[in-house]
């Protein structure tokens, strides 16, 4: 089955969440495929003849869409994200990012990464932290220009007043905003986020969700989000891929039938609840199956 070449006829019918076990349907109202993953498998070196960590994964992520990966711990969500970022090569299969290999795409700064830990350098101010990766990755960009761009992005994420603060003077949420600004300063087409709000409290998490929606509306970037929160996945995504473990694979993909722009009102939409229940069922199923497998 080739997900990428499937006709768009299967796109979401308005009104109900659509589920397609083990295959992927592109979400509506976004561009052509930005990320294509075909039948890849990944195993880490060092684990001799070990089973692949993820296997038979095919995905097509449209330009300008927000896609979430959700699934039990250890099912390979981070691994898949790292593969898209060009950090781990697949042992089988093909992937391309905007038509080129992931590693090349990373070198051209097509992808920006955000992790659970903000990973700010404690000796640099918020501004210098946000400018840091751009400066490292492109020596032609002057320090002044990098800082200017970093400053704009810090303002975009709501840290306009904290440019000169050190990470130790920022709250956890502010640190994570700074790390998002750092990714945006690379001006990537794709934002890859691995449990970016995992270390934050519930209220801050929700605020950060609105920040992501806001950034998406302003920039139209393709966003791939790994999360453990069903709420977050439904609120933010065009499409949610539920993964299962042993081996890590996509068990089903669900298109979220909610219109954009989304905001706190979206929770009140009955379809939100419907999608949430559907997702929860699939997630519990996949948990059960991977427990049997082990």
């Amino acid at each position: 089955m080739n997900a990428a070449s499937e006709p768009a006829a299967n796109r979401a019918l308005p009104g109900s969440p659509i589920e397609n076990a083990a295959s992927v349907r592109p979400a509506g109202k976004t561009g052509p495929a930005m990320i294509t993953v075909q039948d890849i498998a990944i195993s880490y070196p060092g684990i001799k003849n070990g089973p692949a960590v993820i296997q038979d994964i095919s995905l097509s992520i449209r330009d300008g869409s927000i896609v979430s990966l959700i699934g039990p711990s250890g099912c390979g969500k981070s691994t898949l994200l790292k593969a898209i970022a060009g950090l781990v090569p697949p042992s089988r299969g093909r992937m391309d990012i905007a038509g080129i290999a992931p590693q090349e795409a990373a070198q051209r700064r097509l992808v920006g990464l955000v992790f659970q830990e903000a990973n700010l350098l404690p000796w640099k101010t918020a501004l210098d932290n946000a400018a840091f990766l751009l400066q490292v990755s492109d020596k032609r960009v002057s320090a002044k220009e990098a800082r200017e761009r970093a400053g704009e992005n810090l303002k975009l994420v709501g840290l306009g007043d904290a440019l000169t603060k050190l990470p130790s003077q920022l709250s956890g949420g502010m640190r994570q905003r700074a790390s998002i600004a750092r990714a945006l300063t690379l001006n990537p087409q794709i934002l890859l986020m691995d449990e970016p709000f995992g270390a934050l409290d519930a209220i801050t998490r929700e605020e950060m969700s609105y920040l992501i929606l806001d950034i998406w509306e302003r920039t139209g970037k393709t966003i791939v989000l790994v999360t453990h929160s069903i709420d977050e996945a439904v609120l933010l995504s065009h499409e949610v891929h539920v993964m299962g473990a042993k081996p890590g694979r996509i068990v089903c993909s669900i298109t979220v039938p909610l219109a954009f722009p989304r905001n706190s009102q979206s929770f009140a939409d009955p379809r939100f609840r419907e999608t949430e229940i559907l997702l929860r069922d699939r997630l519990i199923e996949s948990h059960g199956r991977s427990r049997q497998a082990s």
Partner: peptide
């Protein structure tokens, strides 16, 4: 140095020397 920070540096094509000078040593 946090492994994910090293990943971050590598993802933008930083060389081990960059990581050494700009991250590991000050850290």
């Amino acid at each position: 140095v946090e492994q994910s920070f090293v990943s971050l540096m590598k993802s933008v094509g930083a060389k081990e020397n960059d990581i050494m000078l700009r991250v590991r040593i000050p850290h």
